[in-house]
Design a protein around this nucleic acid. Sequence first.
DNA 1: ACAAAAGTGTTAGGCCTACACCCATGA
DNA 2: TCATGGGTGTAGGCCTAACACTTTTGT
Lengths: 232, 232
Amino acid sequence: MGGNKGTYIYQYPHPAVTTDCVIFGFDGVSIKVLLIQRGIEPFKGKWAFPGGFMKIDETAEECARRELEEETGLKNAAVEQFYTFSDVNRDPRERVISVAHYALVRLSEVKGGDDAASARWFSMDEVPSLAFDHDRILRMAVNILKERICFEPIGFELLPEVFTMTELQNLYEAILEVKFDRRNFYNKMLKLGILSEAEPRPANATRRTPSKYRFNAEKYAELKQKGFRLEF
Amino acid sequence: MGGNKGTYIYQYPHPAVTTDCVIFGFDGVSIKVLLIQRGIEPFKGKWAFPGGFMKIDETAEECARRELEEETGLKNAAVEQFYTFSDVNRDPRERVISVAHYALVRLSEVKGGDDAASARWFSMDEVPSLAFDHDRILRMAVNILKERICFEPIGFELLPEVFTMTELQNLYEAILEVKFDRRNFYNKMLKLGILSEAEPRPANATRRTPSKYRFNAEKYAELKQKGFRLEF
DNA sequence: ACAAAAGTGTTAGGCCTACACCCATGA
DNA sequence: TCATGGGTGTAGGCCTAACACTTTTGT
C-alpha cells in the first residue's frame, strides 16, 4: 500500500474496501483464470485473485487496474465490476467488502509479466480451493461470463486480433460448455455482420486453408444503435 | 444510525460505505420510482433514493432492506444489488462508496408507510434533479431494469397477484418504451407457459370480461431447469 | 489410403409479424 | 349506434436446426 500509513479516526466504524479481479484467458482449447499465490497471512500459500485495498483517492475500477498491474504485470486491462461481496466474516482480519471485477485478456498480454513471480494461469478444472470467499466469486464470475457472451461481443477480447472461425467456435463452446454444429455456427456468425475478413484469402489458398476474420467494432456499434441485439 | 457512535481508529484511510435503493412501482400506466426528500445537509430538501450507511455487522443487502424500511416503511423488499458507485467526490462529507440496489414492488405495499412522511412516488418523467450522483444511479437502474425484464420474469412483482393480459402488456410497454401488437403479445405470453389462468372464467363472463392470469413460478422453474430461456 | 479439417448449401419446421373479424358494453 | 376493449386465428417470411458432400493435407 502507499505511504499513507498512519492514524485515521472516524465517528462510526468503517469497513475496509478492496477490489478483486477475475481474469479470464483462452488458450485455444479451454478457459483459463489467472491466480496469484498469497505470500502473507491470512491464507498464506493459498491461491487467490489479484486485488487489494482501495486507496482513498481512486475509484474501484482504478484500484482494480492498479492492483492487477502490481501483482501480475498486466496493464490497462478492461476490467468491469460485476458484484460487491459484503458478507460480514469474509476476511478474518477486519470487516472487508470487495468490489469484484472481471476482464478478458489474451494470454500473450500477460505471459511476460515478471512482477508476477507468483501468478499462474489455471484451467477451470484445475483451480484449487481458493482463499477467502474467492471460490464463490469465481462461480459468480463464470456465470456472468456465460450470460454476457450470449449478448455482447466480448469473446473477441480473448482471441488474437485475427482468428479462424473454428477458433471462435471453440471459444464459444468452451465458455458455454455446449457443442455447436460447425456449419450453423459459421452461417450464424457471418450473418450477424460483425466480422470482417482479415485478409482477402491468399492466392495459394486451398480448401484446407482456413479463412481469417477479425471483429469489426464499427459495424457492431452501427448495428447496435439500430436496435440490433446479439443472441446466442 | 445505531448507538455505536464513538472513536474508530485505522492504520489506513477507510471510505464510508452506503447502500441506495431504487424502488420501482407501476400504477397501471407508467413506471414510478420511490424517492425521499432529504431533511438534512448535504442536499437538504433535495430528493434522493432511500439508503444510508452500512453497519459494521450487516451485509449490503441487509443494510439496503433496513434503510428502506426505516425511511419508507416498506418491509422485506426483494432488493438486488446492481452496481457499486465509487467516484471519489460523490459525497461532499467524506469518501463514500455506495452499493446500489433495486427492487420491484406493488404500489399497495408501500402506500400505508407512515414512517415515510417524506417518501413519494414519481413517474419517470416527473423525477426532479436528485441529490448526490443519484441521477446517474437512476439512469443505470432503468437500463438494468430494461435488460432484466427481457430475460427474467420480474415484471410480475410490479402487478397484483392476479392480472389481465392487457395490464401485463401495459407494463412491458411502459418499461421497454415500445408498443406491441396486442394479439402477438397475447399469443407469445401464453405460449411461454409461465402463466396460469387465475379463475376458470366466471359464469357471468361475457366477451367483455377479461381473463385473469397469475404468474406460475413452479412452471417457470421447471422450464428454466430444462434450459428454457425467456426472451422479449 | 485414410482420417481429419475446412468450405459450401438445402430442407423442414418453428417462430415472429402483420393483419381481420366478431362480440359485448358503455357512452 | 358507435367507438372501444377484448377474444380468437391465419398467411408469409425469416430464422434455426439437422444434415452430406467435396477437397486437401498429414500420416
